[in-house]
Design a protein around this nucleic acid. Structure first.
Lengths: 163, 163
DNA sequence: AGCAATTAAGTTATAATATAACAGAATAGC
DNA sequence: GCTATTCTGTTATATTATAACTTAATTGCT
């Protein structure tokens, strides 16, 4: 588990299934209601191989027979974010599933500008660095947005090869 | 110079004047046209003590006798960003002046959730950390969005003191 | 200075993202 | 079963950003 999105050979269906399983369990433990809409939105986000926008989710919601007005999806997204099940990528106005929602944490994302694969890294090292810089000026960190764009290994290979 | 926004006693008018001076010089050197609209937008951004949204700039443009439709301000912002004179804060959809536009760099921002003061730190340490994490997974960094929210020293003092 | 080419600004329209506010339905806890 | 709470449906609208085309200004050339 915890594969990086751009690692080839990763069984994405397995990721999805596992993420949903874990979400159900977490919500059970926390006595939170993972309603059909919320679960569907989470599934759709995981099914996307890249961060997905709120409005891109609406058609699938409609197909599944739900109301598909914006508030529906935003409310589901809000819940999922509160539970740490998805992260919002501010630089893309889009959402990704969180691979380890059990522990509270901030994300640190590597986003490929070409294939849009997005991987969440351990934010620990960056956090430590930020914490040190912030302390030096007396700033108390509460939240960190760390979003890195560039080229994933696969797309680097492609760039030089076939242009 | 290069004061942090939340440091008390900093002469903001001086910041503004200096930023404009530097912008004029840079554009001259680069043979870029810092037109009246562009300069005004830059000035307005610097005059704001916090990141300011594009639409917040429009009234002042109108007052100054310019067209004040969105494209006007977005075009000015685009130019200023290209020249490194302002940064966009993705997590706020807002813009801040860059205190050292002469060298190309990515920003690393500390944003106070209470007074909204925003300071740009040296992104070097965070960059080094990110670079190391990215290299470990073969990712080639091109751009970094690092935006930290929390409480500046002044507002920390206020929190406990007078509630 | 006069002219063509380029760049910037004006203008209208609309796309994309997100939320407010209230009504109705479902669920949980008693 | 009843009531309080939470969730969803629905309509409307706010906020942020860009497309596309027109007009004006500036630059560079001769």
């Amino acid at each position: 588990m915890d594969n990086l999105a751009f690692e080839s050979g990763h069984d994405h269906q397995h990721c999805i299934d596992q993420a949903l399983q874990q979400a159900r369990q977490l919500c059970r433990e926390r006595q939170q209601r993972l309603t059909p809409i919320r679960e569907l939105v989470l599934k759709l986000i995981w099914q996307s191989h890249r961060p997905i926008g709120a409005y891109e989710l609406l058609p699938a919601l409609a197909e599944a027979g739900f109301n598909s007005a914006p508030p529906t999806v935003y409310r589901a997204l809000e819940f999922l974010q509160e539970q740490g099940l998805v992260h919002r990528i501010a630089s893309l106005n889009a959402f990704v599933g969180c691979p380890h929602p059990n522990q509270a944490h901030q994300g640190c994302f590597l986003i490929c500008r070409q294939c849009h694969s997005t991987s969440e890294l351990d934010a620990g090292p960056v956090h430590a660095t930020l914490e040190q810089s912030a302390r030096a000026v007396g700033f108390a960190i509460e939240h960190e947005t760390v979003e890195v764009t560039g080229l994933c290994p696969n797309c680097q290979a492609g760039e030089g090869g076939d242009a």
